[in-house]
Design a protein around this nucleic acid. Structure first.
Lengths: 116, 116
DNA sequence: CGAGAATGAAACGGTAGCGTAACGATCTTG
DNA sequence: CAAGATCGTTACGCTACCGTTTCATTCTCG
């Protein structure tokens, strides 16, 4: 599972993917938003505002705002927790899964083309 | 030079690096800014506002603003071109090189730890 | 020269992000 | 059942980014 990257590969990959994503997709997520989105989709649920804030070392309003924005983009959804109605449970969406699937494909494709 | 990544590795790496960078560094560059910064540091000079705009498929003010911001952060510098004084030549800085070096190290380190 | 093209920056109105602080709703606990 | 803790959101003032348009400067070329 481990990946051994050279410095040139590491930054080269990030470069190619960043440029590619900027050109192909109008949405300009911040690094924070991307981190939140990936956390939601790659780490087993449940996800809460407080939990995400703690995991990323940011304040709660940062999470709320990111969920507002990405919710409007259709990338995530949230509902009140019925067990403890203070909590909000963040849920994945088809749109978000599709977005990350395409993003992952871009990484794989550009990784393969590195140095060309 | 080519990198063959599985979907899990691709998104997992992006996830780990995004989260790690958010936690470790207060600066929250947008994907566009990151693409500009990496373009400046990984592609041979000279770089101009117009050239970067064309390369990334964005308008010129986007580049100007990004250079303003990243210039204030000490990540890039710019000077007028003496040959053609309409042009601005974007230059690398010690701060920017250091920033990307640390960022590259993060990618390498987290790539090695993938799946752990 | 003088007219037009080209370059990067600035102006403008609007949107979205920030950190801090305050808030209502809900749960917990003595 | 009241007092306090906890959760997510909202409010506030501010900064930064957006796209579009306009501008001053500089070069090119007839």
């Amino acid at each position: 599972m481990a990946l051994d990257l050279t410095p040139s590969q590491a930054l080269g990959l990030w470069h190619a993917v960043s440029v590619g994503q900027v050109m192909v997709d109008g949405r300009d997520l911040t690094l924070r938003q991307m981190a939140i989105l990936l956390e939601i989709y790659l780490v087993p649920p449940p996800h809460t505002v407080r939990g995400l804030a703690a995991k990323l070392g940011v304040t709660k309003p940062v999470i709320t705002r990111a969920l507002d924005t990405m919710g409007a983009m259709g990338l995530v959804d949230r509902i009140r927790d019925d067990k403890d109605k203070r909590n909000v449970v963040i849920r994945r969406t088809v749109g978000g899964a599709l977005y990350l699937e395409k993003f992952g494909d871009l990484i794989i494709q550009l990784g393969r083309n590195l140095g060309r």
